[in-house]
Simulated assay, not measured.
Amino acid sequence: MRSLAADFPSREISFNEYDVMFNLSREPNRRIRLRDLNGHVLLTQPSVSRLVDRLALRGYVAKLTDPTDGRGAIIELTDVGYELFRRVAVQHMGTITDRIGDALSTEELTQLTTLCDRLRGEP
């Protein structure tokens, strides 16, 4: 992870900001409750809150009041944020591909994906 972060290809967003945007991009309507987002990233809750605030100031995410809990927040990846995420994702995938190369076969990559999904608690 340190190596990938060191070679992260964007000057517009940081590796951690990309991670938040990646997780938002995978959610229905590209939105998630802030407290649920905390479970998807390797940052402390206060760090995630500050990072989200920075992304919101730049227009990459919107921070909305949770209609079911006025104390909570829903974070939504904006169209501008999604376009930036997609552009950076293509570059980042190139970096990952350069590192991994042909070390794993397609079958092994499929198996690795299945195992990672299981570790994350996904079916």
Rank of each mutant, 00 (worst) to 15 (best):
S105F: 13
E107K: 13
R99E: 07
D66R: 02
R87Y: 15
E107Y: 12
T106E: 06
E83G: 03
T110M: 08
L112T: 01
V80Y: 10
T106G: 05
I100R: 15
G59E: 04
L109I: 02
E83P: 01
Y82H: 09
G59Q: 04
T110C: 01
R87M: 09
A62W: 13
L109C: 03
D117K: 13
R87K: 15
H92Q: 04
E108C: 01
Q111F: 15
L119K: 15
G59P: 01
L55K: 10
A89Q: 14
L57V: 12
L115R: 05
Y60M: 15
L104C: 00
D79Q: 14
Q91E: 10
E83H: 12
V88K: 00
E76R: 08
A62F: 09
L104W: 11
L84F: 13
A56D: 12
L64A: 04
E83W: 14
R71Y: 11
Y60R: 07
A89K: 06
I74R: 15
A103Q: 00
E83R: 07
G70P: 04
L115S: 01
C116W: 12
E107G: 04
I96W: 13
V61G: 10
R86C: 09
P67H: 11
S105N: 12
R87Q: 09
G70W: 15
C116K: 07
A56N: 12
I100H: 09
D79A: 10
T78L: 02
M93Q: 09
L104F: 07
L109V: 01
L57S: 11
A56M: 15
A73E: 14
T114S: 02
G72D: 11
V88L: 00
V90W: 11
S105T: 06
E107V: 07
T68R: 08
Y60K: 10
R54E: 00
G81W: 15
R71E: 15
L55F: 15
S105Y: 11
E76Q: 09
E108V: 02
R99T: 02
M93I: 05
H92Y: 13
E83V: 02
R99K: 10
D79K: 09
D117F: 05
G72W: 15
M93E: 13
A62S: 14
A56C: 13
T78S: 01
T97K: 06
G94Q: 08
E107T: 06
G81Q: 05
T106W: 13
V88P: 00
H92A: 04
V80M: 13
T68C: 08
Y82L: 02
T97V: 02
G101Y: 08
P67W: 10
T114M: 04
V90C: 10
